[in-house]
C-alpha cells in the first residue's frame, strides 16, 4: 500500500516536470519562430574592411572557399597594364602566363578596343585569396573585391573565416544585405 502511494507521488512529480518542460519548449518555440520567420541571417564580407590576408582561401570549410573575387565593372578602368592581372615584379610588361598575378589563372582578359581590356573572374578557378584584389587596390580603382558567393556558402553558424579574419570584415547580416560592394551601391 505504502509502495503504491510512493509510486503515485513519483508519477505526479514526473507529470508536473513534463508539463513544465512542455510549457518551456512551447515558449521557446513561439518566441523564436516569429523571429525566425521574419528574415534570414547570412554572412557578409565588407570589402572596405578587407585587408586581403589570404585566410579566406585557406579557412573556409568548403574545399574551395565560398569567398570569391567579384569584379565591380562600374569601377573598372579597363586598363591594359592591370594591377590585378599582372605581377608587379615582372621583367617585361606583357601578358605572358608567367606574368599573371593570379595563382590559379582565374582572371581572363579580353581585348575590347584600343587601349581597353575587360577582365573577368572565372569563378570556378578563383580560390578567394585576394591577391588580385590587393594589386587592383594598390594601382587601380579597387574594382576587384572579395565577396561571399551565397550559392556556395553553406552559412555555418560560426563562419570559420570570420573566426580568423584579422580585420573584422565578416558579419552576420540580414539576407537582404548579403552582398556589399565598395564604391557603387548595388
Amino acid at each position: 500500500m505504502a509502495e503504491k502511494k510512493q509510486y503515485n507521488r513519483r508519477d505526479f512529480i514526473n507529470n508536473s516536470l513534463r508539463a513544465g518542460i512542455a510549457v518551456s519548449l512551447a515558449g521557446i518555440t513561439v518566441a523564436l519562430t516569429t523571429r525566425a520567420l521574419s528574415g534570414k541571417s547570412v554572412w557578409q564580407l565588407n570589402p572596405a574592411k578587407c585587408v586581403q590576408c589570404g585566410r579566406c582561401a585557406t579557412s573556409c570549410i568548403l574545399e574551395t572557399s565560398a569567398v570569391k573575387c567579384v569584379h565591380v565593372y562600374d569601377m573598372c578602368g579597363y586598363c591594359d597594364l592591370c594591377g590585378g592581372y599582372l605581377r608587379p615584379d615582372t621583367k617585361e610588361l606583357n601578358t605572358a602566363a608567367e606574368n599573371q598575378l593570379c595563382p590559379t589563372s582565374a582572371i581572363s582578359r579580353k581585348y575590347i578596343e584600343e587601349p581597353f581590356f575587360e577582365y573577368q573572374i572565372i569563378e570556378e578557378l578563383c580560390i578567394g585569396c585576394g591577391k588580385c584584389v590587393k594589386g587592383c587596390g594598390a594601382f587601380g580603382n579597387g574594382s576587384l573585391q572579395l565577396q561571399i558567393n551565397h550559392k556556395l556558402c553553406v552559412n555555418c553558424n560560426q563562419c570559420a573565416i570570420a573566426r580568423v579574419c584579422p580585420s573584422e570584415a565578416f558579419s552576420l547580416v540580414s539576407a537582404s544585405d548579403a552582398y556589399l560592394y565598395q564604391g557603387k551601391k548595388m
Partner: peptide, 10 residues
C-alpha cells in the same frame, strides 16, 4: 558591360 552576379543563397 557584363552584369554583376549576386547568386542567391540555397
Amino acid at each position: 558591360q557584363p552584369t554583376m552576379q549576386t547568386p542567391c543563397p540555397r
